[in-house]
Protein backbone atom coordinates (compact mmCIF):
# COMPACT_ATOMS: atom_id res chain seq x y z
CA UNK A 1 0.00 0.00 0.00
CA UNK A 2 1.33 3.39 -0.94
CA UNK A 3 1.50 6.01 1.76
CA UNK A 4 3.40 9.16 2.54
CA UNK A 5 7.02 8.67 3.59
CA UNK A 6 9.62 11.21 4.58
CA UNK A 7 13.16 10.30 3.56
CA UNK A 8 16.00 11.91 5.48
CA UNK A 9 19.55 11.75 4.18
CA UNK A 10 22.71 13.02 5.84
CA UNK A 11 25.19 13.95 3.13
CA UNK A 12 28.34 15.76 2.23
CA UNK A 13 27.79 19.19 0.73
CA UNK A 14 28.72 18.37 -2.86
CA UNK A 15 27.81 19.81 -6.24
CA UNK A 16 25.78 17.30 -8.23
CA UNK A 17 24.54 15.24 -5.29
CA UNK A 18 21.03 16.65 -5.60
CA UNK A 19 20.90 15.27 -9.14
CA UNK A 20 22.18 11.86 -8.02
CA UNK A 21 19.46 11.65 -5.42
CA UNK A 22 16.73 13.04 -7.69
CA UNK A 23 17.43 10.53 -10.44
CA UNK A 24 17.05 7.64 -8.03
CA UNK A 25 13.38 8.73 -7.91
CA UNK A 26 12.88 9.85 -11.49
CA UNK A 27 14.42 6.64 -12.88
CA UNK A 28 11.59 4.77 -11.16
CA UNK A 29 9.01 7.35 -12.20
CA UNK A 30 8.45 8.42 -8.62
CA UNK A 31 7.29 11.99 -8.11
CA UNK A 32 9.04 14.02 -5.41
CA UNK A 33 6.30 15.83 -3.55
CA UNK A 34 8.61 17.96 -1.48
CA UNK A 35 12.36 18.32 -1.24
CA UNK A 36 14.46 20.36 1.14
CA UNK A 37 18.20 20.60 1.58
CA UNK A 38 19.70 22.37 4.54
CA UNK A 39 22.56 22.23 7.00
CA UNK A 40 22.17 19.64 9.76
CA UNK A 41 23.08 19.65 13.43
CA UNK A 42 26.62 18.69 12.38
CA UNK A 43 28.79 21.33 10.78
CA UNK A 44 29.61 20.50 7.18
CA UNK A 45 26.97 17.78 6.94
CA UNK A 46 23.88 18.51 4.88
CA UNK A 47 20.46 17.10 5.31
CA UNK A 48 17.98 16.19 2.58
CA UNK A 49 14.31 15.85 3.45
CA UNK A 50 12.24 14.27 0.70
CA UNK A 51 8.55 13.45 0.72
CA UNK A 52 7.11 10.79 -1.57
CA UNK A 53 4.07 8.53 -1.80
CA UNK A 54 5.23 4.93 -2.03
CA UNK A 55 5.01 1.45 -0.59
CA UNK A 56 7.26 0.63 2.32
CA UNK A 57 9.10 -1.95 0.23
CA UNK A 58 9.92 0.63 -2.41
CA UNK A 59 10.90 3.33 0.04
CA UNK A 60 13.26 0.92 1.80
CA UNK A 61 14.95 0.19 -1.53
CA UNK A 62 15.13 3.90 -2.31
CA UNK A 63 16.77 4.61 1.05
CA UNK A 64 19.39 1.94 0.31
CA UNK A 65 20.01 3.33 -3.16
CA UNK A 66 20.42 6.82 -1.69
CA UNK A 67 22.75 5.54 1.01
CA UNK A 68 24.77 3.75 -1.68
CA UNK A 69 25.83 7.10 -3.17
CA UNK A 70 29.41 7.88 -2.26
CA UNK A 71 28.59 11.30 -0.80
CA UNK A 72 25.70 10.10 1.35
CA UNK A 73 26.41 9.10 4.95
CA UNK A 74 23.02 7.72 6.00
CA UNK A 75 19.47 7.62 4.74
CA UNK A 76 16.34 6.99 6.81
CA UNK A 77 12.66 6.77 5.99
CA UNK A 78 9.74 7.49 8.27
CA UNK A 79 5.98 7.63 8.25
CA UNK A 80 4.22 10.82 9.35
CA UNK A 81 3.68 9.64 12.93
CA UNK A 82 7.40 9.03 13.40
CA UNK A 83 8.39 12.62 12.70
CA UNK A 84 7.66 16.16 13.72
CA UNK A 85 7.29 18.19 10.58
CA UNK A 86 6.46 21.66 9.40
CA UNK A 87 6.05 23.60 6.20
CA UNK A 88 6.14 27.37 5.92
CA UNK A 89 3.88 29.37 3.63
CA UNK A 90 3.84 32.98 2.44
CA UNK A 91 0.70 34.84 1.31
CA UNK A 92 0.62 38.19 -0.46
CA UNK A 93 -2.65 40.17 -0.19
CA UNK A 94 -3.61 43.77 -1.08
CA UNK A 95 -3.06 46.02 1.93
CA UNK A 96 -6.22 48.11 1.29
CA UNK A 97 -8.46 45.10 1.57
CA UNK A 98 -6.79 43.90 4.73
CA UNK A 99 -6.71 47.30 6.40
CA UNK A 100 -10.41 47.88 5.81
CA UNK A 101 -11.51 44.64 7.34
CA UNK A 102 -10.63 44.35 10.97
CA UNK A 103 -11.68 40.75 11.26
CA UNK A 104 -8.80 39.70 9.04
CA UNK A 105 -6.53 40.48 11.93
CA UNK A 106 -8.41 37.98 14.08
CA UNK A 107 -8.43 35.34 11.33
CA UNK A 108 -4.70 35.60 10.96
CA UNK A 109 -4.18 35.24 14.67
CA UNK A 110 -6.36 32.14 14.65
CA UNK A 111 -4.12 30.64 12.03
CA UNK A 112 -0.91 31.57 13.77
CA UNK A 113 0.05 33.85 10.90
CA UNK A 114 2.06 37.02 11.18
CA UNK A 115 2.80 39.91 8.88
CA UNK A 116 6.31 39.81 7.46
CA UNK A 117 6.08 42.89 5.25
CA UNK A 118 3.48 45.63 5.23
CA UNK A 119 3.61 48.05 2.31
CA UNK A 120 1.09 50.49 0.98
CA UNK A 121 0.19 48.20 -1.92
CA UNK A 122 0.53 44.75 -0.39
CA UNK A 123 1.13 42.81 2.79
CA UNK A 124 2.93 39.48 3.12
CA UNK A 125 1.82 37.06 5.80
CA UNK A 126 3.64 33.96 6.92
CA UNK A 127 2.42 30.86 8.65
CA UNK A 128 4.01 27.56 9.54
CA UNK A 129 2.37 24.23 10.10
CA UNK A 130 1.09 21.09 8.47
CA UNK A 131 -0.24 21.06 4.92
CA UNK A 132 -3.84 21.31 6.16
CA UNK A 133 -3.12 24.45 8.15
CA UNK A 134 -1.31 26.31 5.40
CA UNK A 135 -4.05 25.27 2.98
CA UNK A 136 -6.76 26.57 5.31
CA UNK A 137 -5.29 30.03 5.34
CA UNK A 138 -5.45 30.15 1.55
CA UNK A 139 -9.19 29.67 1.79
CA UNK A 140 -9.41 32.39 4.42
CA UNK A 141 -7.41 34.91 2.41
CA UNK A 142 -8.90 34.20 -1.02
CA UNK A 143 -11.92 36.50 -0.45
CA UNK A 144 -9.48 39.35 0.25
CA UNK A 145 -7.74 38.99 -3.10
CA UNK A 146 -4.82 36.63 -2.54
CA UNK A 147 -2.17 37.82 -5.03
CA UNK A 148 0.53 35.23 -4.49
CA UNK A 149 0.99 32.05 -2.49
CA UNK A 150 4.05 29.90 -1.97
CA UNK A 151 4.80 27.01 0.36
CA UNK A 152 8.20 25.70 1.37
CA UNK A 153 9.32 22.10 1.33
CA UNK A 154 8.77 20.01 4.40
CA UNK A 155 11.37 20.00 7.14
CA UNK A 156 11.17 17.14 9.56
CA UNK A 157 12.73 15.99 12.80
CA UNK A 158 12.77 12.26 13.46
CA UNK A 159 11.20 11.67 16.88
CA UNK A 160 13.44 8.84 18.05
CA UNK A 161 16.66 10.08 16.45
CA UNK A 162 19.56 10.99 18.68
CA UNK A 163 21.04 13.20 16.02
CA UNK A 164 24.07 12.63 13.87
CA UNK A 165 27.02 13.63 16.05
CA UNK A 166 27.59 10.11 17.38
CA UNK A 167 27.03 8.49 14.02
CA UNK A 168 29.49 10.83 12.36
CA UNK A 169 32.18 9.95 14.87
CA UNK A 170 31.72 6.32 13.84
CA UNK A 171 31.94 7.16 10.15
CA UNK A 172 35.08 9.19 10.62
CA UNK A 173 36.91 6.49 12.53
CA UNK A 174 35.92 3.34 10.67
CA UNK A 175 37.80 2.02 7.69
Amino acid sequence: MKQEYTLTAYTENQVGLLNRIAIIMSRRKINIESLNTSPSEVEGIHRFTIVIQETEEMVRKLARQIEKQVDVLRAFYNTGDEIVWQEMALYKVPTDEIAEKVKVERLLREHGARAVVIRKDYTVFETTGHREETNNLIKVLEPYGLIEFVRSARVAIIKDSRGFHEQLAKFSSEE
Binding site: T11, E12, V70, D71, V72, L73, L168, F171, S172, E174, E175
Partner: peptide, 12 residues
Protein backbone atom coordinates in the same frame (compact mmCIF):
# COMPACT_ATOMS: atom_id res chain seq x y z
CA UNK B 1 42.92 7.85 -0.86
CA UNK B 2 42.14 5.22 1.76
CA UNK B 3 39.04 6.54 3.43
CA UNK B 4 36.07 8.71 2.58
CA UNK B 5 33.89 9.39 5.58
CA UNK B 6 30.59 9.26 3.67
CA UNK B 7 31.48 6.07 1.81
CA UNK B 8 31.47 2.62 3.30
CA UNK B 9 32.84 0.24 0.67
CA UNK B 10 32.14 -2.88 2.71
CA UNK B 11 29.34 -3.38 5.17
CA UNK B 12 30.41 -4.65 8.57
Amino acid sequence: CEHIRSYRPKPI
